[in-house]
Design a protein around this nucleic acid. Structure first.
Length: 260
DNA sequence: CCGCATGTTTGCGG
DNA sequence: CCCGCAAACATGCG
């Protein structure tokens, strides 16, 4: 559940289930998930409450009633689960029990997720080297960022210290919709290219977020639903190809996406 | 059994 | 120092 739209969905999920309830029990799982001692997590969270949530890129910052923040990163397979029955999920790494009997678990099968405690969002952003949240950028900000960026455009967009929130799926998507080949060099991108990328980045993130919230499927015109080698391009011309960039599978249409 | 998967980090080589 | 690549992490799925 990991790029900006999925994380936004997790925020709403916690908002609608778990705020303003006294935490009466704290259970922790795999040690590697916890970026401070598990005992410290228990200490801080017990008899505390989740107050409000903000998002930066793929991170959720959950403000605690008694000072500080619980920060959640979902890795590749993390998600929250709210329930009232007894059995906790096999892959629950943190389970908070509220005084109303509800329970909130952080589920994370592959254990690539992380949980942090911090007192300052600003310090946390610096420590993690987080760039600006993708959907908070103006077009001018976006263009300005590219003035100093080098390398291939896919790696640039995947870099969380450059822009926070984009990941493998939606970088491929915005490049597809912009007609730009993922191996294009950032220094070769013109004003029109950046303009298209910005428009499509916002559009893709907003459309996918809306789909998640409403439980709908994403548009079939999106590359997302044709993400396999040899599949027909949704535009009708080419066949989808797969290459590796930065170790990640990158899907694109050689007919529609021009190398710059 | 094999390859692949929405992420991040680390180490190596150019 | 910057860039690109491969591997590692751990588990499930087709």
């Amino acid at each position: 559940m990991p790029e900006l739209p999925e994380v936004a969905y997790q925020k709403v999920y916690i908002d609608s289930t778990s705020l303003h309830q006294q935490i009466v029990q704290v259970e922790t799982g795999a040690t590697k998930i916890f970026q401070s001692a598990k005992k410290y997590f228990e200490e801080v969270l017990l008899k505390n409450q989740l107050e409000s949530i903000s998002q930066i890129g793929k991170y959720l910052l959950v403000e605690l009633k008694k000072k500080g923040f619980l920060v959640i990163h979902f890795g590749m397979t993390g998600r929250m689960d709210y329930f009232k029955h007894d059995e906790v999920h096999k892959h629950a790494q943190l389970t908070l029990t509220f005084e109303n009997g509800g329970k909130l678990s952080f589920i994370c099968p592959r254990k690539f997720g992380k949980l942090f405690l911090t007192d300052s969002i600003e310090n946390f952003k610096k420590k993690q080297k987080l760039g600006p949240h993708a959907t908070n950028l103006s077009k001018a900000d976006f263009q300005k960022l590219f003035e100093k960026k080098k390398g291939n455009v896919k790696s640039a967009l995947m870099d969380q210290s450059f822009i926070a929130g984009l990941g493998n799926l939606y970088v491929d998507e915005m490049l597809f919709q912009s007609g730009i080949h993922p191996k294009s060099k950032t220094e070769n991108l013109g004003k029109n290219d950046l303009s298209a990328m910005y428009k499509n980045m916002i559009e893709v993130l907003e459309t996918v977020t809306k789909s998640k919230m409403e439980g709908k499927k994403i548009p079939t015109s999106y590359l997302r639903s044709h993400r396999s080698e040899g599949a027909d391009c949704p535009n009708g011309k080419g066949k989808i190809e797969m290459i590796k960039i930065g170790g990640r599978s990158t899907y694109f249409c050689p007919e529609c996406q021009e190398i710059k």
